[in-house]
Design a protein around this nucleic acid. Structure first.
Lengths: 250, 250
DNA sequence: CGTCTTGTTGAAGGCTCTCAATATTAGTGG
DNA sequence: CCACTAATATTGAGAGCCTTCAACAAGACG
C-alpha cells in the first residue's frame, strides 16, 4: 500500500542495535533489511508463530502482550521508535513468546535469522549491542518480578504509570501526558491486577487531583505524589487500594 | 586456601557461553580467566556492587536473590555447574542487580569487562551464545511475570517446585529430590508468597502424600499431581490455598 | 540443658477479586 | 445534529484468598 522510504545510514546508526558501526557495515545491514508498514490495531506477529524475524520499529507504537492457556494476560512492554522487538526468539526456541499489536500506524524493518547471524558474525558490535538491549530488558523484567511478588496493587499501578511517563510521556501544560490512549484494562494488564481495581485506583487519584484522563489519554499532574505512593515505605507492603488518595482527598 | 585445578579446554567448550569455539579461541579464553573458590554460605557478590565481572560457575550451587529498599525479597534464580551469572551487568549499568550466595562449596571462573569484550570482538560466537543465554532468561522472567500477575499462590508454588525438579532434581527411590536444602522461606521467595502460605501449602501436599521434606530437602513423589495443580484450568485463577490437596486427602 | 533457627497451625482482618448494575463515552448511520 | 449501539468506566456489595500476628512445636548446636 504505502510507500516506504529507504532507511538512511544516518537513521540506522541511531538505532541502539546498530550503534557504533562503520559506514560499510551499515550498508550491509541496509542491504538485507525488509521494510514493512502497518495500520493501527494490526497484529505484527502472533505468540507461538514460528517464522520469526528480528524487528526494529522505525515509527509508531506497538504493544507486546503475552497470554497463557488459562486466559490470563499481561502487557510485557511497549515498543517505540528505534526499539528492537521479537529478536530474542531467533536465538531461543524460534517461536515468538508474545503477541505484537500496533497502537498507531507503524513502520518497521526486519531481518531474517540468517541475515542477522551473518551480520553479527562479521560485525560483533551488533551482537554486543544486542546483549546490552536484552540485558536491560532482563533486568527490568526481574525488577517487575520483585514488584509483583512483594508490592500492593496500588504501588504497582503507580510504578506502571511512572515507567510510562518516563518512556512515553510528553510534558504539556496539563502535566505529563502519555502518548497513546490506554484503557483501564491495559493499565490492569501492565500492573498485574484487574480492570476493576485499576479503575478504582485511578479514579481515586483523579479525585485527589493527581491525574486526569481525557479520551483514554492519561495526564499526570502530580508526579511527586505518584512517586510517594510508589516508594513510601510507610505503606505496609500490600496495602489498601487508593487509601492514600482518599486519605488525602479527605 | 584451596588449590584450583586449571580448567581444561574440554571443560571450557562444554560451557554454553563458549560453545562452538575453535581450540585457539578456547586458549585465549583460558588465558584471561580468573578462578576462585568459596565455602558454603558465602557472598560471591553484592547487589549494587560496581566492580563487576562475568562469572561462570564450575562447581556447586548459588542462589541469586534481589531485595528492594522496602525489604521485599525474591529469589531470581539458582545457578548450577556450567551456568553464567553476573555477566549482564557488564553491559548495562555496571552494578550487580542482585546478591549471589553459595548454597554449597563452589568454584567459579570470572573475566573482567575488558577481557570479555575483547574475546567477544575477536570471537563473535561468544557474543551470540551470550544472547541466547540472556534471551532464555528474559523469556523465563517474562513467563514468571505472567504467573505472578495472574495465578494463585498454590499454582505458583507448584510451578516453582516443577522448575526446581527440572533444573536441579535427582531421581531417587524416594522420588525426585531437589539437590540442595531449601527453607520454607526460600520457597516463599521463589513463588512470591509468604513463609506461612508456603508452609501451609507444602504441609497440605505432604498430608496428601505428594512430597516429603527430610532435613530441608524436598522429595517430590507425585510429579503428576503437581503438574495437575500447576496446569489445571478448573482451578479458578487465584484459588484456595492447598484446597486441592485437602480435598484429595479428605 | 538452654538457645536459636525453622516449621506448623489457629484466628482475625483486610486487600483484592468477582459479580452485577449503572453511567459514561465513542462510534455509526440517518 | 441527533438517535442508536457498542464499548468502556464507575461503583457497590459480598466473598474469599492471603497476609499478618501470635503461640507453640521440633530440631540443631554448643
Amino acid at each position: 500500500m504505502s510507500k516506504i522510504p529507504p532507511l538512511s545510514r544516518q537513521a540506522l546508526s541511531n538505532l541502539e542495535l546498530f550503534r557504533g558501526l562503520p559506514a560499510t557495515a551499515l550498508d550491509e545491514v541496509l542491504a538485507s533489511a525488509a521494510p514493512r508498514s502497518f495500520a493501527r490495531d494490526c497484529r505484527v506477529f502472533n505468540q507461538g508463530e514460528t517464522r520469526v524475524r528480528a524487528h526494529v520499529l522505525v515509527d509508531g507504537w506497538i504493544r507486546i502482550s503475552q497470554s497463557g492457556s488459562d486466559g490470563g494476560q499481561v502487557v510485557l512492554r511497549f515498543i517505540g521508535p528505534g526499539d528492537t522487538f521479537g529478536a530474542v526468539s531467533l536465538f531461543t526456541d524460534r517461536r515468538y513468546p508474545a503477541d505484537a499489536d500496533t497502537l498507531t500506524d507503524a513502520t518497521e524493518v526486519s531481518w531474517s535469522d540468517k541475515a542477522l547471524l551473518d551480520l553479527m558474525n562479521s560485525h560483533p558490535q551488533i551482537a554486543i549491542n544486542a546483549i546490552r538491549i536484552v540485558g536491560q530488558r532482563l533486568q527490568e523484567a526481574q525488577h517487575r518480578v520483585r514488584e509483583l511478588a512483594t508490592q500492593s496493587a496500588e504501588r504497582r499501578v503507580a510504578h506502571a504509570l511512572l515507567r510510562l511517563t518516563r518512556q512515553v510521556g510528553t510534558a504539556t501544560a496539563r502535566g505529563i501526558v502519555i502518548r497513546f490512549p490506554l484503557r483501564r484494562k491495559d493499565i490492569a494488564d501492565i500492573a498485574g491486577t484487574t480492570l476493576y481495581s485499576a479503575s478504582r485506583i485511578l479514579s481515586a487519584w483523579e479525585r485527589a487531583g493527581w491525574l486526569k484522563t481525557l479520551d483514554r489519554r492519561i495526564a499526570v499532574e502530580s508526579l511527586s505524589e505518584l512517586v510517594r505512593i510508589a516508594e513510601d515505605e510507610s505503606e505496609t507492603g500490600r496495602g489498601a487500594i487508593a487509601a492514600s488518595a482518599d486519605r488525602h482527598a479527605g
